[in-house]
């Protein structure tokens, strides 16, 4: 599927940031921004909402903790009680390391998996290329053509030091 985008190309992240902030002020909807490295403050500039990932992490961690504790209690005290050094069957200090590890394991793996799924990242996925130098030294702001007019974009981004503002036909599912 091919799609038309209005792209503004920058060679400086500060210019990109000020441009993106301005676009948000003017209610110009940015589809995505492509940068060679993480630009601090860009989330704010694009008006991206907080990720829901922390909640996934918390729930997965809680699930790991519950599983670890219940499984240890079940094996150590219910299914096959074992007397270890005369200690009670349910001895919380002995359960701490495994509970901790399973909490971390579940939280970490689920977070990574959720991140990949949410961002539709998988092996063999081809990147969307707005500009051949977007992973090298150029910063690209992309807007959908039916939502933002080329003239508006040109007026706004040229003022903030865009090298070029143009229409680009991009292959979304290469």
């Amino acid at each position: 599927m091919k799609k038309d985008f209005v792209v503004a190309i920058f060679d400086d992240e500060e210019k990109l940031l000020s441009g993106a902030f301005k676009a948000r002020d003017k209610n110009m909807e940015i589809y995505d921004v492509y940068t060679p490295f993480p630009v601090h403050g860009l989330d704010d500039a694009m008006g991206i909402k907080r990720s829901f990932l922390p909640y996934v992490t918390f729930l997965a961690g809680a699930a790991g903790l519950t599983l670890a504790v219940s499984y240890q209690v079940w094996t150590m005290a219910i299914d096959w009680p074992i007397n270890v050094g005369g200690k009670p069957f349910i001895s919380w200090p002995a359960f701490v390391p495994i509970s901790f590890e399973l909490t971390v394991l579940f939280a970490a793996h689920t977070t990574v998996a959720a991140f990949l799924v949410y961002n539709k990242l998988f092996p063999g996925k081809n990147p969307v290329i707005m500009h051949p130098e977007q992973t090298c030294n150029k910063f690209v702001v992309a807007m959908e053509k039916d939502k933002v007019s080329l003239e508006d974009a040109k007026a706004l981004f040229s003022e903030h030091g865009a090298l070029e503002v143009k229409i680009q036909n991009v292959d979304m599912n290469p």
Binding site: G85, K87, P93, A94, V96, P97
Partner: peptide
């Protein structure tokens, strides 16, 4: 804290 407590508790 738990590292100190756990080992001492376990070894007894």
């Amino acid at each position: 804290w738990i590292s100190q407590y756990l080992l001492i508790w376990y070894a007894n």
